[in-house]
């Protein structure tokens, strides 16, 4: 048993050059065919998992292109009558499509605010120690961990009293509660990875702090900013409880409109499914933009 133990240290000690040479010799032994056979096997687990993930979404999609009558009467994997009527309902009725616009407005506002205020704070946490810094960091994190349900009711009263109730800004500010701590956490991780010598060299070269920060430092952590913005967008886009509590008509998010319609109109399944499908699109677009950072960025920059 002891022979199979690979302490990390000994592995690191081995010169990569010689490892590669030796590894090459060992690797040539199995034929190409064997390698080819092994590849599909390796994909079985991820493939099954992705099928599990996509089945419910596929079902939502087929429902969205069926008529209500077909949904309720027959059971089939692919619609007999392919129809876009359900989508047309949403695109032509302002009370539906306004919901998407409202959601997008407050999500974008929240992302900009969160990342904007988190940038200097994360810089301070990553570069300096100051009185109470650790406790401050922990306090920020507890807000990420506090259940929104605890805050729902006082939020309603707080934002009513400052006259922000039923505005996009109210939802954007409320979502800052959990997005700002997250953004600070992610950005701090990325900034700690940037060597401090860069800061010092820039100051010696006569850069002022704002110029250094925007011209030199921010490009260094561009991927970190992207990942932080992605997470802020994601958590603001998916949250319902606070968004619903803080809005009535003007800034009502799409997800709240969906719940209302479900209870009121006696289950218009087709439209409900179409509305659900449309909420996937912003997420899919955002994932596409960060696809190259996903593997690295999800580790919050601190691995």
């Amino acid at each position: 048993m002891k022979d199979t133990r690979i302490p990390a240290g000994s592995a690191a000690k081995i010169d990569t050059q010689s490892t590669r040479a030796r590894g090459g010799v060992v690797e040539k032994a199995p034929t190409r065919a064997a390698v080819r056979k092994r590849i599909p096997k390796r994909w079985i687990v991820p493939t099954l998992y992705i099928i599990f993930l996509l089945l419910p979404i596929y079902w939502l999609f087929t429902m969205s292109v069926k008529t209500n009558q077909e949904i309720l009467s027959t059971f089939n994997l692919w619609p007999d009558q392919f129809t876009f009527d359900n989508y047309m309902v949403i695109f032509t009725d302002p009370s539906w499509y306004r919901g998407y616009i409202n959601s997008t407005i407050y999500v974008v506002m929240n992302t900009v605010i969160s990342v904007g205020v988190a940038l200097p704070a994360a810089y301070a946490f990553s570069r300096y120690t100051f009185l109470g810094d650790k406790h401050l960091f922990f306090w920020l994190l507890t807000n990420r961990m506090a259940p929104p349900a605890v805050f729902a009711l006082p939020f309603f009263q707080l934002y009513s009293s400052v006259g922000l109730f039923d505005t996009h800004l109210a939802v954007a500010l409320a979502h800052c509660l959990f997005n700002v701590p997250l953004a600070v956490w992610i950005l701090e991780g990325f900034m700690s990875g940037v060597p401090k010598e860069i800061d010092e060299t820039a100051y010696i070269d006569g850069y002022s702090f704002p110029r250094f920060f925007t011209k030199i430092f921010m490009p260094q952590i561009a991927s970190g900013i992207g990942v932080a913005a992605f997470f802020c967008f994601m958590f603001s886009w998916v949250e319902l409880l606070l968004a619903r509590t803080l809005t009535a008509t003007e800034a009502k998010p799409i997800s709240a409109i969906m719940t209302r319609t479900v209870s009121a109109s006696g289950m218009d399944w087709g439209v409900l499914a179409a509305a659900g499908m449309l909420t996937l699109i912003p997420g899919a677009i955002v994932i596409y933009f960060v696809r190259n950072y996903i593997a690295k960025g999800f580790a919050l920059g601190r691995v």
Partner: peptide
Amino acid sequence: LMALPLLIPWNV
């Protein structure tokens, strides 16, 4: 594809 469920609104 795996990240997709993470970006669906919770009520959806």
